[in-house]
Amino acid sequence: MAYKIKASDCTACGACEAECPNNAISFKKGAYAINADLCTECKGQFSSPQCASVCPADCCVPA
């Protein structure tokens, strides 16, 4: 299970990258993307997926 970023809505602000506890988010080829292998949906770490909670465009969603 993992989250993904809907690129069409992303503002490329990078807020999610700074919050991810697993460094699953990075800026590659001009867009932010979540590495599904690293994403844990923040389970066991936080009460909610951090990227989705901070994202101003509500574009971090379950993959």
Binding site: A15, E19, S47, S48
Partner: peptide, 9 residues
């Protein structure tokens, strides 16, 4: 409408 603080919205 919202803030993100202490790992929560």
């Amino acid at each position: 409408p919202w803030i993100f603080h202490d790992h929560k919205r």
